[in-house]
Amino acid sequence: MRYIKKCPFLILLIWTSAIVVALHYGGYMNPDTDNVLEFLRDTVGKMQENVKEHSGQNIQLSEETENMLVESEEEATGIADAQMQDELPQEEYEEIVVKPQYELRMVDDAYFEDAVFIGDSRTVGLYQYGNMTQATFYAETGYNIYKFFDGKIVTVPDSGEKITVEEALMRNQYKKVYLMIGINEMGRGTLEGFMEEYTKVVKRIKELQPDAIIILEAIMKVGKEKSDSDDIFNNVNITKRNAAIAELADNESIFYFDMNPAVVDEDGNLNAEYSFDGIHLKAQYVQIWKDYLYANGIVRTE
C-alpha cells in the first residue's frame, strides 16, 4: 500500500498496462479511428456486446435487419440493368464520350450554379482555392465512399445542423453532380468491395437527383515520388480503380470525366511542380483543374 503513495505513477502504469494489454488481446481495442472519443465509445460498445452474449441473450435478427437484407438483393439486380449500356474500350485516359443529346463545350460560371461537388480533400482544395462560390461543395478531408450514408459532413446553413451527403441530396436538387472519391479507400478492403459500395452510392444519387447528370471524376493521380515509393497509393492502382469507375458510365445520365490529362507529366504522374506532397494540388494550380472543368462542361443540346 505504501508503494501507491511512494510511486503512484509506476503502480498506475503497471495496473493500466495490464488492463490495456488484456483488452487488446481480447480483441476489444482496434484504433480504427483517429478520434479518441469515438474509439472509446467503440471499445465500450464491444465490451457491452460481449457481456450481453455471455448472459445468454439470443440476438434475434431485428425486423430492420431483415428488411435491409431484402433491399440489398433488389439492388444487386438493379445494378446489372445499369451495366447493360454500351461500354467503350478502356484506355488509360478515358475520353469523354457523349451521346447525341449532350455535347462537350466551354461553359461559364452560370453552368455551375446548380452543380454540386462531392469528394475528399482534393475536392476540398477545389473549394478552398477554385473560387467557384456559385457551386455547392460537399467535401471533407478523409472522406470515403462508406461515409456517404452516415458521415455528417454537411452543415445546413441557417440551423448549423450537420447532415450526411445523402440527406443533403434529399433536401436539395441539382442539375450536375460531380463525384471524385476513391483514394482514401485504397488503404483497406478490395477493389471489388469498393466498387460495390461506389455503385450503390451512384445508384442512390441517381434516385435522389432524377434531373441531374452524374459526373464520375477519375481519381486524381499522385506524384512520381509517392507512386514509386508506395505499395498501395500509386498510379497503377489508381488507374485500375479509375477503369472500374469508368465502367459505370452510361453516357446518358452518368458520365466519366478524367481531369488527369491536365495535371500529369509525360509519365502520367501528377506533375511535381503542381504539388508539394504529391497528393494535393497547390492552391495556385487548382486553377488548372477548374479551367479543365470549365472547358469540358456537359451540355444538353436539345
Binding site: 498506475l12 502504469l13 484504433p31 483517429d34 479518441v36 474509439f39 480533400s121 482514401n184 483497406r188
Partner: peptide, 25 residues
C-alpha cells in the same frame, strides 16, 4: 500523467497500426 501517457500511446498506435487511417487525403 497516466492519462497523458495513454493518450500519447493511442495517437502513436493509430498512426502506426493503421497507416491507411492516416491516409487522410
Amino acid at each position: 500523467l497516466i492519462l497523458l501517457f495513454w493518450l500519447s500511446v493511442y495517437y502513436i498506435m493509430s498512426a502506426e497500426s493503421n497507416p491507411f487511417l492516416y491516409s487522410h487525403f
